[in-house]
């Protein structure tokens, strides 16, 4: 503890790290949480609405069932997201919408496509192949681990009751 509260010189002043951080935080631009939530809501909602429209289209015009239509729906959304990433548009949507464009499947596709584009200059194997899951990798890892744990809990509960 003693080292944590030790004052350090900034010019002729003596300040502890806590004192400085408190003083500096005054100048931190405030994030408008309500506005951010609203933007995330409407952009995220619009992406989901688009997904629903696509699903209905696949059911009504292409003979898919409600269950099987999800595959072409997701594939179409991924295609749109990757295209917008390649055209340099998706990152602007992301800056505006925050979680709204990060959470749906389009955000996942963007994280993979953006890493693949970024590392293209280092070659296909070590560049694209080695780096495209740089950001998405942890989503996959923790997604699988969470699903595994949920599966075990469900199985155990089934055995007990």
């Amino acid at each position: 503890m003693a080292t944590k509260t030790k004052a350090k010189p900034i010019g002729s002043m003596q300040m502890t790290k806590q004192m400085y951080q408190q003083q500096a935080s005054k100048y931190q631009p405030k994030r408008n949480v309500m506005l951010n939530c609203f933007r995330a809501f409407w952009v995220g909602g619009t992406i989901c609405l688009l997904g629903q429209a696509l699903q209905n289209m696949y059911i009504h015009f292409f003979g898919f069932t409600e269950k099987t239509a999800s595959n072409p729906t997701v594939a179409t959304l991924i295609f749109i997201s990757v295209l917008l990433t390649g055209l340099g548009i998706y990152d602007n949507i992301g800056q505006y919408a925050g979680a709204g464009s990060a959470v749906p499947v389009t955000g996942f596709a963007n994280s993979i496509a953006s890493a693949a584009i970024e590392h293209r200059s280092e070659g296909f194997v070590l560049g694209v192949g080695g780096n495209m899951f740089k950001l998405a990798g942890s989503v996959i890892v923790f997604g699988v681990v969470a699903a595994f744990l949920a599966g075990i809990i469900k199985s155990v509960l089934k055995m007990i009751f």
């Binding site: 953006s114 890493a115 970024e118």
Partner: peptide
Amino acid sequence: ERQYRYPTEYGGQKPPS
């Protein structure tokens, strides 16, 4: 961006600071 942060086309939101 590549050196310190994320791929340039990654759609993560950056804070105003």
